[in-house]
Computed example of a mutant assay.
Amino acid sequence: MGYLDDLAADLSAPDSNPIPAEEAREANVMSKDKIVGAGPGDWDSYVEFDEFDGGDGQMGVAGDGNKGLDKFDMSTIAKSKSMSAKNAWGTNTGYADTLIEQGVDTSRAQQLENWHNQQEVLQKRKAQRSLTEDFDSVDSTEDENWRNLASFGVERNQEFDMDEAFGAVAADTNIEGTIDLTGQMNAGYAVHEMSLKNPYMGFADFRAAFTDDSPKEFTCSPSEGALKQREATDFTVKFKAQGPGVVEGYLVIETEDFKKTWKVIGRTG
C-alpha cells in the first residue's frame, strides 16, 4: 500500500460542496475595485488552513490532517541505522561488524574500518609507484627504447609450444613485400614499423620470427602474442649494421590459420 492508496477513500468521497455555482471561477474572482497595488485589498474571503504543513512532498498536503512525516515502521528505521552508517562512512568488509559485536560504537567502528581500507589502498599505490620508479630508473640504451613497448597488450590467449605447433620457421613462396633498411655501423638501429590484423574472426596466437638462415642483425618485436580481427597489432622490424655490405633475410608472421612472409634487406650506408 502506498501513500496515494491511503487517499483513495477521500478521492472517491462525495463532493464536500455540491453547489457548482459556488466553485465556478466567476464566483471566486476578486472584483477589480477591491484590488490594491496588484494584490488583494479585501481579505473577507480568505480561508486559513491551520493544518497546512508547508507543502513538502513528504509532509502531506493542505487539509489532509497529516502534519508530520509519512508513517514509517520505526523498527525498520532502527534496523537500517547500521547500514546507513556504513553507507555514510564507507565500504563494509566485515571488520566493522566484528568491532560492533565487541561493543564499539557503529560510526567509530566504520571509521576504523575505513582507516584500514585506506591504508591498504595507500600501500597498493606505493607498491605501484615503486614499480614505476624502478622501471624508470633502469639505464636506457639504444637497444632499450620506447619501441620495445610495442610488445605490451598482445599477450597470447593460449599456452603452447609454437615451435612444436608451427615447426621450423620457413619462408612462404608468396612474398607479401620487401622491407629495405639502411643503417650505419655503430649508430643504432634502422627501423621499419608495420601493422597487421587477423584476417579471420576473433583472436589468433602468432609467432613473428626470422628464418634460421637470416642474419642476426635483424630483429622483430613483438615476437609472439595474439592478433585481433578489429584492431591492428604494431610490429617493429630493426636492422643493426655489423659490417659493410648488404644482408638479406625473411621475416615470417604466422598463426595456425595463415602465414605471411616479408623479404628483409639490410644495407650499411
Score class of each variant (00 low, 15 high):
24 A>C: 07
24 A>G: 11
24 A>H: 06
25 R>C: 01
27 A>C: 07
27 A>E: 06
29 V>T: 09
30 M>L: 11
31 S>G: 08
32 K>E: 06
32 K>G: 00
32 K>D: 05
34 K>V: 02
34 K>E: 09
36 V>C: 05
37 G>N: 12
40 P>G: 10
40 P>E: 10
42 D>F: 01
42 D>C: 07
43 W>N: 13
43 W>S: 13
43 W>E: 13
44 D>Y: 08
45 S>G: 02
47 V>D: 02
48 E>R: 07
50 D>Q: 07
52 F>G: 01
52 F>C: 03
53 D>T: 14
53 D>L: 03
54 G>L: 04
54 G>E: 00
55 G>P: 01
59 M>I: 06
60 G>I: 02
60 G>N: 06
62 A>K: 00
62 A>C: 03
63 G>F: 00
64 D>V: 07
65 G>V: 06
66 N>I: 14
67 K>C: 06
69 L>G: 14
69 L>E: 14
70 D>S: 15
72 F>E: 14
72 F>D: 14
72 F>W: 13
72 F>I: 14
74 M>S: 11
75 S>L: 12
76 T>A: 13
76 T>H: 11
77 I>P: 02
77 I>V: 10
79 K>A: 12
80 S>C: 08
83 M>A: 12
85 A>M: 03
86 K>R: 09
86 K>C: 02
87 N>Q: 13
87 N>F: 09
88 A>L: 09
89 W>A: 08
90 G>C: 04
91 T>M: 04
92 N>R: 00
93 T>N: 02
95 Y>Q: 06
97 D>M: 02
97 D>Q: 08
98 T>K: 15
99 L>K: 10
99 L>D: 10
100 I>D: 06
101 E>F: 08
101 E>G: 13
102 Q>M: 15
103 G>Y: 08
105 D>L: 01
107 S>F: 08
108 R>T: 09
108 R>H: 07
109 A>D: 04
109 A>Y: 03
111 Q>S: 10
112 L>Y: 10
